[in-house]
């Protein structure tokens, strides 16, 4: 697996380089947007770690140019800026995830794995959230080595949660998701469906927050 680090701060770049190399990845590093564009033009990368504050152009601008040229290398934005506008801009431009400095190495590795899984999923049409993989074409769901084909309503519920891992959905939001799939909704439908899904896989597949809603965690802990 080949990773490109686009980071102008030498300390961060060196630390990332060493850590990712130790994790078994092949690492290239550049410090400017121009060098990054050049590297991406001649080499295929599994993932790009992109700092937004580059000396010659913003990371957002680099991302925009890459996507405009049809380059869809999975990207993970790493930045010191965490204002909402910046985050939205990066994600809108096809950044796959967003990590704010400082961060733990474990988290970075988990996010890289998630980005890779999602990009592979994109290629095959599957949805990946944490430890769950869903195939909307076949309603096939895999979780911790168990694979099963789910009935429409169970799949609809799980799909709604998996589309936005880490986001809590309320009962009403889940009901709407099931309804969208063309089914009648009874008052306890959500509880029943979740009960079935948990029985099929494991209690931990869907987390419940008392009175608030349900979620699928973003990354396994």
């Amino acid at each position: 697996m080949r990773v490109l680090i686009v980071e102008d701060d030498p300390m961060i770049a060196r630390s990332l380089d060493r850590a990712l190399t130790e994790a078994g990845m092949a690492v290239d590093r550049v410090a400017t947007a121009a060098d990054a564009a050049a590297a991406l033009a001649i080499q295929e990368y599994s993932v790009v770690l992109l700092d937004l504050g580059l000396p010659d152009a913003s990371g957002v601008e680099l991302l925009r140019r890459l996507r405009a040229n049809g380059n869809d290398t999975p990207s993970l934005v790493i930045t010191a800026r965490d204002d909402v506008a910046m985050r939205v801009a990066a994600l809108d431009l096809g950044s796959d995830d967003y990590l704010v400095k400082p961060f733990h190495l474990d988290e970075l590795l988990a996010r890289i794995r998630a980005v890779l899984r999602r990009s592979q999923g994109r290629a095959t049409g599957t949805v990946v959230a944490g430890e769950i993989q869903l195939d909307p074409a076949t309603h096939e769901v895999s979780y911790r080595g168990t694979t099963a084909v789910l009935p429409a309503r169970e799949f609809a519920l799980l799909h709604a949660l998996a589309e936005r891992p880490g986001t809590i959905l309320s009962r009403h939001q889940l009901e709407t998701a099931i309804y969208d799939w063309g089914n009648e909704v009874e008052s306890n439908a959500v509880d029943v469906l979740i009960h079935y899904v948990r029985k099929r896989f494991d209690k931990d597949v869907i987390r419940n927050l008392r009175g608030i809603g349900w979620t699928i965690p973003k990354a396994p802990r």
Partner: peptide
């Protein structure tokens, strides 16, 4: 940024 380097 230096904190991130330290953490890593």
């Amino acid at each position: 940024t230096p904190l991130a380097a330290l953490q890593l």
